[in-house]
Design a protein around this nucleic acid. Structure first.
Lengths: 138, 138
DNA sequence: CCGTATCCACAAGGATACTG
DNA sequence: CAGTATCCTTGTGGATACGG
């Protein structure tokens, strides 16, 4: 008589595998890169140090909350450096750290693939949708 | 007298910018790559064609629903090909398409950066957290 | 064996208003 | 100017059960 049912064993395996996935460096990086505004911020900072207000202008689609949150996460990861100049009003600049700059080539690799193959992806999506959503007339 | 308030103009700009972001090939790809199980599936299929059940075993952490959903999305994007052998019970295999294989080097670039620099990221996070959550004793 | 349908919890993201 | 706090809507992912 087993001390655990097979369902119990499977659930344990699920949790163990999930913990491993969450620790996996690649997945952690993909996760960060997958955040909605991270790519845009990196591209913007690649042009050079930038003030908060300038970033806000460049990322007009992002809410103030999301912009700040994104910058904080990147700062915590050591990818972005935040520097405050205590004037009145205060001036806050953001810049890539060396670690952040080392990530740029990775981003460029993604961008290159995307621009080269996005047409293929679009075509595939259209073909897929065509076969599943046949023209309404029967 | 302006026909729109500045608040209205800013909101329009937000929406316009967001639409552009959603269309941007790079962001679309980052979005897909950021999906929780996409990286794992690609790594698994890189080893070769695989049955659904084998993928389920390899991705023990993923629920059946998410596994299927992930595979569908990748199929729709033209990255993965699904083939059904109508035996009893049915046998379903998944394999990378040439387009999917062309994405592997991109993934490897991410993996390489991640394994090389994850220690730096961890150190940065610890340092950041240390300065914001000072030891409880005062 | 493979897939779908439901229902559900939680996290991500956004709108707004307010502070130093 | 930069940031925080609050509230709210939506999307993502998971558990479970059922069907071909």
């Amino acid at each position: 008589m087993p001390t655990q049912t097979s369902a119990q064993r499977r659930e344990e395996a699920r949790h163990a595998h999930r913990a491993a996935v969450d620790l996996c460096p690649t997945n952690r990086v993909l996760d960060r890169l997958g955040d909605k505004w991270v790519g845009l911020v990196l591209v913007e900072l690649e042009k050079g140090r930038s003030r908060h207000a300038d970033l806000a202008r460049a990322l007009a689609g992002a809410s103030q909350k999301m912009l700040t949150q994104t910058l904080r996460e990147l700062e915590r990861d050591g990818l972005v450096e935040r520097s405050v100049t205590p004037s009145v009003p205060v001036r806050v600049d953001y810049a890539l750290t060396p670690l952040g700059e080392s990530l740029l080539p990775v981003l460029h690799t993604v961008t290159r693939w995307a621009t080269r193959h996005i047409d293929d992806v679009d075509a595939a999506q259209r073909a897929y949708d065509r076969n599943r959503t046949p023209r309404s007339h029967k």
